[in-house]
Nucleic acid binder design. Structure first.
Lengths: 156, 156
DNA sequence: CATACCTTGACAATCACTTTTATTTCAAAA
DNA sequence: TTTTGAAATAAAAGTGATTGTCAAGGTATG
């Protein structure tokens, strides 16, 4: 509904053919907005609708969808490439908070970096177009639990 | 000379054995301060001194040196893990500027993130311990060349 | 609907990295 | 020193994600 109409159009503009597989892959990622699916997970999900699809097709399609701006590749260094939906209206990649304890991943929509990017342009003359930012630490829940544990349970 | 003395000590503290291979790996990374060597590059360099060393030793040693705080793993998504020296005095990982044109990698020693990290703690309760930040764009030289080309040449 | 060529699926190959295995080294005890 | 068992090693085989190959099939245009 939203950008589905654009897929055909964008594919055509870039000289790619419009295929059911490409639509299916985008469908899957869109249906899992907010998640960070691995290529294999996407493969499995696409196969539910198209059991005959090949792995290679998935691996070939994802970079195309990324090139067209529908999805972003993200890397949480767990040994595979993951993808997330590029929501319409997003201008930059958002940041991720990775909890070291529970492994939960939180998205930070606020950009917060403009000031820094200006400073870097001033200091280095480097013109920033995009960024990838990951913060590692403890999420609220794990941090609270930690503090409670440290007080030997005398505190709630 | 600087932290070489500490290696033995730190290895011992963590219950690791002091081996010539571990020293050799650290030597190589230290000798290439400012570079971002891949595991394979480190392997090749170590073999110049210890031709009999095995790849697996390198792959096992690098995470140990990272755990001890001597080096950082960095990922420029070129298909391999790279390592850089953790210079004494550095409290956080520094940021990297990656030029899309000439592929040059510049290091940003300024942290610049404290304010943001405070905001994130306020908004999300997430306690940040470390970060990985990469900026993509054009370095000063490539940006200048771009502008000159656009002014000199014809308009397309 | 026929042609040209893009895309696909199957599967082998590759690539970075890990595990296994047999062997060696280490540091402390005897 | 020599002994000894845990830890570390090299080499090779294994792993799992990703890519390459190629014949067959699908898509866009005349």
């Amino acid at each position: 509904m939203k950008q589905k109409k654009d897929l055909s159009q964008l594919l055509r503009e870039k000289g790619y053919k419009i295929t059911a597989q490409r639509k299916a892959v985008l469908d899957v990622v869109e249906a899992h907005d907010g998640e960070h699916l691995s290529s294999q997970e996407i493969y499995d999900l696409v196969r539910k609708k198209f059991p005959e699809v090949g792995v290679a097709t998935i691996y070939r399609t994802l970079p195309v969808l990324e090139e067209l701006g529908f999805i972003y590749a993200v890397d949480f260094e767990d040994g595979c490439t993951r993808y997330e939906l590029h929501r319409t209206g997003q201008t930059h990649r958002h940041h991720h908070l990775l909890c070291e304890r529970c492994k939960k991943i939180t998205e930070v929509e606020d950009d917060l970096l403009e000031e820094i990017e200006d400073k870097i342009y001033g200091n280095y003359g480097f013109k920033i177009k995009d960024h990838r930012v990951k913060f590692y630490g403890l999420c609220k829940e794990c941090d609270n639990k930690d503090n409670k544990d440290n007080n030997d349970g005398f505190d709630t």
